[in-house]
Design a protein around this nucleic acid. Structure first.
Lengths: 207, 207
DNA sequence: TACATTACCAGACATTTGTCTGGTATGCAA
DNA sequence: TTGCATACCAGACAAATGTCTGGTAATGTA
């Protein structure tokens, strides 16, 4: 007999296990849950799963193989998708044309808008922990708030900076004392999107 | 008998059907494919699926329920998987058992070893662009090279540092002038793994 | 303490699901 | 024509998987 665990602790882990397996694409069977938690009885695993269903944290298709999953169609459920890693970000339209796609990056999305990724160039944001070569995950949106880190197009050049909205001007602030803020003409500034995540591939090459 | 369809046209639609079901989270059974395409025989659906596997467009887990999926885990092919985000990293062996898993993180892996993730604490590596709260993606391995950024266990505490192997000692170097290198006793040092990627979730909450 | 609840177990059973054997009809090429 | 491959079918079988019954022991609580 496995050692007993205090009140809902094991259940919490089982919930996360199931959720993780869903992200991997194949929901677990009851027996796979049993094995993952070193239970000796299938029923132990099933009772935990049924309890999670009663709590509303999991949903199930009765009698079906691998039928346990997240509650159906719940808004805000995280989903893993692949977003394009763009090479050059050029003026004007953001071309999701296939020619400029250098690869794909998996992200967990809650369906909150168009995402894309690009490689950071230059050292102007090292103070915020953003180094050259880092991958910025960006949500494509034309406006942003003061304090947001944004991808902006000034003239022909794409740049990652922190946005400061002043009374009379919009400023793009670096986070590195060696660089000066940029105060572009409003008509030559295009906000491409807001940086929502930074990644640094130390060893894994881009895909 | 259903009307015959010209050469691979039905197969193409079946491939799309399976792929669509995978995105929804639950791979189809052979019989579900049969019904979706109004076949009268299970075997018809299975033959199409097996043919797709032979063509390399699908993969399958033999004999397992809902075992058809996109090709995964082939040599060198990048695959998106979910790896556990560990809360506390405790002394002794790394329990990839479901203990202490705070969530899951999607990464593209080429099957090169066990991966896990953990949250960086402290400011000792800010000079390398690693900030507190960042997620470190780690490959579980007991040794590393000079210059690698590693997760090491000194006594009971897990820490992220740059590894320096000297003649007489192993040193763990911070990348922040406010911190001093750690020179642990060899017998109280355990290398848990090498950091291969850093992530910073600016907006997307952890999952 | 007594009692209910929880966590766990063992094993049988039922259903779902994958696999196999053998068959028919159509089109196509030698 | 003959032969072969393809697309489909019918039914049986085997394996995987969900479900049920009836337990034991630890834990929590009145």
């Amino acid at each position: 007999m496995s050692p007993r665990t205090p009140k809902g602790q094991t259940r919490e882990r089982i919930y996360r296990f199931v959720r993780g397996r869903l992200l991997e694409g194949l929901p677990p069977t009851v027996r796979e849950v049993r094995d993952a938690f070193n239970f000796h009885a299938v029923e132990t695993a099933r009772e935990h799963l049924e309890q999670l269903v009663r709590e509303g944290r999991l949903a199930k298709k009765k009698g079906k193989a691998r039928g346990y999953g997240l509650p159906t169609g719940f808004k805000g459920d995280p989903v893993t998708i692949a977003i394009p890693l763009l090479g050059r970000v050029q003026a004007g339209e953001l071309t999701t044309a296939v020619e400029d796609i250098e690869g794909y990056v998996p992200v967990q999305s809650r369906g909150t808008g168009d995402l894309f990724a690009l490689t950071v160039r230059g050292e102007s944001m090292t103070g915020a922990g953003i180094m050259p070569g880092d991958i910025a995950i960006v949500r494509h949106q034309p406006i942003a708030n003061t304090g947001d880190i944004v991808v902006a197009l000034v003239g022909d050049e794409a740049t990652v900076k922190r946005l400061r909205i002043k009374k009379n001007a919009i400023e793009l602030h670096p986070e590195n004392p060696d660089f000066e803020p940029i105060v572009p003409d409003t008509n030559e500034l295009v906000i491409l999107g807001k940086v929502i995540e930074i990644r640094r591939y130390i060893e894994i090459p881009k895909v």
